[in-house]
Amino acid sequence: MGMSVIISAAAAEDAEQILKLQYLGYQPEAELYGDWAIEPLTQSLESLRTELTEQHVLVARLGDEVVGVVRGHVDAEGIGRIGRLVVHPRMQRHGLGGRLLEALERRMAEDSRPVTAYRLFTGHRSLGNLRLYARQGYRQTSVEQVSSRLSFVHLEKPVASELAATA
């Protein structure tokens, strides 16, 4: 690749690049489920800017380009809620999604609230996502039928004991 991918906290000026990457990254999901009205494709720039101030948002950069993003927050019960993991199509299958997940888990473990587990969800047909999450230690906890075409697979990963001891 030549350049190294650097993972860091997103900045306000990253919002437009993040939104464009999100739109690009969720096209295959929309096609898979036959639904182009999914929230990642309809999110406004203003809404994303608000998320940048309210959540942990990490980006992967290749030079000046944002090529990956993930966001999350720790809820009142100490659950690290992870969402919208997106990796640019040309950067997929190189471990970047796993690196972003691990970096976000570390960031949330440093949150002022202790984290007991990490949770996320994906569509039931999103087999690549399900394989990635399984490799990262996530296990299915439930399946929620959203519509006749879509079910969400909910997954959870307990906090590793060495992380829990330092939290």
Rank of each mutant, 00 (worst) to 15 (best):
S147I: 09
S112H: 13
L96T: 02
H154W: 01
S126E: 12
R119T: 14
A165D: 12
T50F: 04
Q43C: 13
L155Y: 00
P89I: 02
L163D: 14
M91Y: 04
L24N: 05
D111Y: 02
M1A: 13
S8W: 06
T122Y: 00
R139W: 08
K20V: 06
V146T: 06
S126T: 05
R119F: 07
V87W: 03
Y118T: 00
P158L: 10
M1P: 15
Q22K: 03
L24H: 07
H154C: 00
G68T: 06
A15L: 08
H154I: 00
S147M: 09
E77V: 01
P28K: 10
L32I: 05
A165T: 09
F121A: 03
A109C: 15
A10K: 03
A167V: 02
V146Y: 08
E16N: 10
E31Q: 11
E156H: 00
E144H: 11
D75V: 07
S8Q: 14
V143Y: 04
I7F: 04
G98I: 05
E162I: 11
E102T: 13
R84I: 05
F121E: 06
A109P: 07
G2D: 13
G80R: 05
P40C: 09
Y133T: 11
P89A: 02
L101T: 02
V143W: 06
A165H: 11
H73E: 13
V153M: 00
Q92H: 03
L155W: 00
A30Q: 03
G98W: 03
R135K: 15
V69G: 00
H94R: 13
R71T: 14
A164W: 08
T122L: 01
H124F: 09
F152Y: 09
P40N: 09
G98R: 02
F152K: 07
T122D: 01
G78L: 10
S47H: 11
S148L: 10
H94A: 11
R93M: 09
S4P: 04
A9Y: 12
F152P: 00
E39Y: 15
R61E: 08
V59Y: 06
H124E: 13
V66K: 01
Q140R: 14
S161P: 08
E65M: 08
R49W: 09
E51F: 11
Y26N: 07
W36T: 12
V153K: 00
R81W: 10
G2T: 13
G137F: 11
Y133G: 12
L85M: 14
I38W: 08
A164Q: 09
A160L: 14
